[in-house]
Simulated assay, not measured.
Amino acid sequence: MKVLHIITGLAAGGAEQQLLLTIRHLPPGIHCEVAALTNPGSVAEALRAEGVPVHDLGMRGNRDLGVLPRLTRLIRRGRFDVVHTHLYRAGLYGRLAARLAGVRAVLATEHSLHAGTIEGRPVGLGVKSLYLAAERLGSTTVAVSRQVAGTLGDWGVPGQRVEVLPNGIEAGRFLHTERERARIRRELRAELGLPEEAFVIGAVGRLVPGKRFDVLAQVLPALPGQVRLLLVGEGPERARLARLAGPRAVLAGERADVPELLTAMDVLAAPSVEETFGLAVLEGLAAGLPILHSGCPALEELPADAAPGARKLPSTQAAYRAALFDLATGRPAAPLPRPAAVAHYDIVRTAAHLGELYQRLGRGLPPVPAEREI
């Protein structure tokens, strides 16, 4: 079976990393290629290094209609059985191109959708109408959480066209022996200029307003002197966050070694209230860290005892200052046991179910309702 993934861009980001992990773990017999409308960045390099063909369509802007015939020709030449789109712009152009090329099995993963926003941008009537028109050109829309599925329903997408298939993490990458963990922690703290005795608050994600990392930066000066802040990610908020946090913060930028960097942290904090899944929280749990978060649909859709190391807080300075003070001044904790939530969201499990979905759509079988989910 041949599958073409179409995505808006391939710079480092949650949806882009999910695409990489999913392709890496799909069942045997599924050949994947990737088409990026624009910006084939670090994730494109990683895909190519693993032997996945990546096509750069060179789209110059949202209204560059010339990408449509290029994409249609690519789909026809490749004789793909399934076309799978990711992110808003790719969903618009990709589903239309697939239909023009004669592909009937067309699905789209909805990675970031809230009641009034899509991918962090406000949604007006025009955007919503265009989204719904494009959605009808596909076979199935995949929601990464029940929250996303609910929003799709509120927007008017019929339930029988939605399948809940959550994101996943490479759980095995976060496993280290006690000796390995100590060595990695020591080496990375030295590289980053973090004192060995420091209590390190970690945060992972794009440095954008919606992540609310400014909450952490603003409480840092009020915490004990041994506390440091380690921000992993890049984005337009970098300069502001550095200014707010002062010299006790390290902004590591975009990194590929997140599983290792988590060993340099003592707690993972995620103050965002706009998450549609919460991958960083799951990765922190897989690494044995205590978690402070303000919104993680991935955990909220599981039983309460699935992640005992995670604590939900209001996304306020007062709440995070108090919780972080307690952790920083308490007894140092050993890595926490791996909770059930990590196994539930292992990418191997998710990719296996996606492979089944490809086979079903490729045979012309109808999609299943949103109630069927893994």
Rank of each mutant, 00 (worst) to 15 (best):
139 S>M: 08
256 A>L: 13
270 A>K: 04
40 P>Y: 15
39 N>W: 15
208 V>Y: 00
360 R>Q: 15
172 G>S: 10
301 E>C: 05
175 L>Q: 15
49 A>S: 15
237 E>Q: 15
111 H>R: 14
242 A>P: 04
110 E>T: 09
252 A>S: 06
178 E>I: 03
282 L>W: 04
300 E>W: 12
369 P>K: 08
188 L>P: 00
110 E>V: 10
235 G>A: 09
135 E>Y: 00
183 R>E: 07
268 L>W: 07
344 H>M: 04
312 K>C: 03
18 Q>M: 09
21 L>S: 15
199 F>W: 03
112 S>T: 10
317 Q>H: 08
110 E>A: 12
134 A>M: 01
205 G>P: 14
195 P>A: 07
354 L>R: 04
105 A>P: 14
43 V>W: 05
27 P>S: 07
207 L>S: 11
314 P>R: 15
236 P>H: 05
164 V>G: 02
356 E>D: 14
44 A>E: 00
285 L>W: 00
52 V>A: 10
354 L>G: 02
223 L>E: 01
70 R>I: 14
77 R>C: 03
57 L>Y: 05
132 L>S: 10
327 L>A: 01
323 A>Q: 03
101 A>V: 05
250 V>Y: 07
37 L>E: 06
16 E>L: 07
44 A>W: 06
277 F>R: 11
164 V>A: 08
284 G>T: 00
332 P>S: 11
218 Q>D: 15
179 R>Y: 00
245 A>N: 01
155 W>F: 10
325 F>A: 12
360 R>C: 09
35 A>D: 02
256 A>E: 14
319 A>R: 07
3 V>Y: 06
196 E>D: 14
75 I>C: 03
292 L>G: 04
141 T>N: 11
334 A>Y: 08
216 L>Y: 05
84 H>R: 11
37 L>A: 10
363 R>P: 00
138 G>T: 08
367 P>L: 13
81 D>L: 09
361 L>M: 10
180 E>L: 01
82 V>Q: 02
210 G>R: 15
343 A>F: 13
368 V>R: 12
276 T>R: 10
35 A>V: 02
195 P>L: 06
301 E>Y: 10
94 G>F: 02
134 A>S: 14
